Simulated scan of single mutants.
Amino acid sequence: MVKMTTEILELVKKARKGDDNAFEKLLKDQYEYIYRTAYHYAESEFEILDIIQETTSIAYQGLRKLKNDQYFYTWYIRILIRTAYKMRSKTKKIVIEDETSLVADIDYSNEIEQEIDLNDSFNKIERKYADVLQLYYYQDFTIQEISNILEIPSGTVKTNLSRGKQKLKQILGGDYFEK
């Protein structure tokens, strides 16, 4: 989560008035955060960069519509999530793999395997649960911030967190991370 300082708020004000350098600085300063968020909605480096590029374009064009400078990053992440889902629904995946070649000579550590399993599990649960879980656990947003980003009541966020964790537990098995 990004802490909004007076410096950041000043940059947002400048950006809203048309200062391209201020807008660029806002995004560059939080690029790792933005990238990490896009990572959870993409399947390749190309898709991550495409999502960020498209999100930035949409945000730049709609910057004057931002109502509260305090929520600049919340607003940007909301656009990013919507953009990622739109882009994913437009592209169809065709995957051809030879399972034996994927396993040969690769020594995954247990941690990497768990990360792969967890990411795969997010694709198997409903979108509303995956979104809340990713924003809460990977991006460290509070329940209220998630409520603002997804434009749903905070009670619904809590419910979706609980149900999402239950769904992951069913998919991965109750003792999955106790191995």
Score class of each variant (00 low, 15 high):
Tyr76Arg: 08
Ile77Trp: 12
Ile77Ala: 05
Ile79Lys: 11
Ile79Pro: 12
Leu80Lys: 08
Leu80Val: 02
Leu80Met: 04
Leu80Tyr: 13
Ile81His: 01
Ile81Tyr: 04
Arg82Pro: 09
Arg82Gly: 15
Ala84Arg: 09
Lys86His: 12
Lys86Glu: 10
Met87Tyr: 03
Met87Asp: 02
Met87Arg: 13
Met87Cys: 07
Arg88Gln: 14
Ser89Tyr: 10
Lys90Pro: 09
Thr91Pro: 07
Lys93Ile: 02
Lys93Leu: 03
Val95Arg: 02
Val95Gln: 01
Glu97Leu: 13
Glu97Arg: 13
Asp98Trp: 13
Asp98Ala: 14
Glu99Ala: 15
Thr100Asp: 09
Thr100Asn: 14
Ser101Tyr: 14
Ser101Leu: 09
Leu102Pro: 06
Val103Lys: 15
Asp105Val: 13
Ile106Gly: 11
Asp107Gln: 12
Asp107Asn: 15
Tyr108Ala: 11
Tyr108Arg: 04
Tyr108Thr: 05
Asn110Lys: 14
Glu113Pro: 01
Glu113Val: 10
Gln114Glu: 01
Ile116Glu: 00
Ile116Val: 06
Asp117Ile: 00
Leu118Ser: 08
Leu118His: 07
Asn119Lys: 10
Asn119Tyr: 00
Asp120Asn: 12
Asp120Phe: 07
Phe122Tyr: 02
Phe122Asp: 00
Asn123Tyr: 06
Lys124Trp: 07
Ile125Tyr: 09
Ile125Arg: 01
Glu126Ala: 15
Glu126Phe: 00
Arg127Ser: 05
Ala130Glu: 00
Asp131Thr: 05
Asp131Asn: 13
Leu133Pro: 08
Leu133Ala: 11
Gln134Trp: 04
Tyr136Arg: 00
Tyr136Phe: 06
Tyr136Cys: 02
Tyr137Gln: 00
Tyr138Ala: 15
Ile143Gly: 00
Ile143Glu: 11
Gln144Trp: 01
Gln144Val: 01
Glu145Tyr: 04
Glu145Cys: 14
Glu145Ala: 12
Glu145Trp: 12
Ser147Cys: 03
Ser147Met: 14
Ile149Phe: 01
Leu150Phe: 05
Leu150Tyr: 06
Glu151Phe: 15
Glu151Thr: 05
Glu151Asn: 08
Ile152Asp: 00
Ile152Val: 09
Ile152Glu: 00
Ile152Arg: 12
Pro153Ser: 15
Pro153His: 15
Pro153Asn: 13
Pro153Ile: 04
Ser154Arg: 08
Ser154Thr: 08
Gly155Asn: 08
Thr156Met: 06
Thr156Gly: 00
Lys158Val: 02
Thr159Lys: 12
Asn160Trp: 07
Asn160Ala: 02
Leu161Tyr: 04
Ser162Met: 04
Ser162Gly: 01
Arg163Ile: 02
Arg163Ala: 05
Gly164Ala: 08
Lys165Gly: 04
Lys165Arg: 09
Gln166Lys: 15
Gln166Cys: 14
Leu168Trp: 01
Leu168His: 00
Lys169Pro: 01
